[in-house]
């Protein structure tokens, strides 16, 4: 349910990018998900296939990069990978902010183009 509405938002953004670049067909949409994205990759993939069918993104693949949780200590600036959701700084025990792994990130969009009609970007 949640994945469906995320994919709807994602497809809208992909559509806008595609138009901006004058492309018709989408080949691949690459996203990044992490342990706190609130997204289950398998469900995201099936929602994508379902909602892309019959649209400009029909047949496109959704490439999902699964990343780990990265954080930075707000006291000592140490950057580290969060293990087992333990958010205490391993060096000083300080409070941290998350750098990566808590969102659904649109990384890139691959579109079909033709050599004779090179698209400038």
């Amino acid at each position: 349910m949640h994945e469906q509405s995320l994919v709807r938002t994602l497809l809208k953004q992909v559509d806008a990018i595609r138009r901006e670049h004058g492309a018709d067909q989408i080949r691949e949409v690459r996203v990044e998900v992490g342990p706190l994205s609130g997204v289950e990759p398998l469900l995201l993939e099936s929602a994508f296939d379902q909602l892309a069918a019959g649209t400009f993104a029909d047949g496109a693949t959704l490439a999902i990069d699964e990343v780990t949780l990265q954080a930075e200590c707000r006291s000592c600036r140490q950057q580290f990978e969060v293990d087992a959701f333990d958010f205490r700084c391993p060096d000083c025990g300080g409070h941290v902010r998350i750098l990566r792994g808590d969102e659904l990130m649109l990384v890139s969009v691959s579109v079909a183009c033709h050599e004779h009609a090179k698209i400038s970007s």
């Binding site: 995320l6 990018i17 969102e103 990130m105 649109l106 691959s110 079909a112 183009c113 033709h114 050599e115």
Partner: peptide, 14 residues
């Protein structure tokens, strides 16, 4: 005319 693929980098939180 050859088919090619162009990748547009976005990197934006959905």
């Amino acid at each position: 005319m050859t088919d090619c693929t162009k990748t547009i980098n976005v990197r934006r939180d959905v």
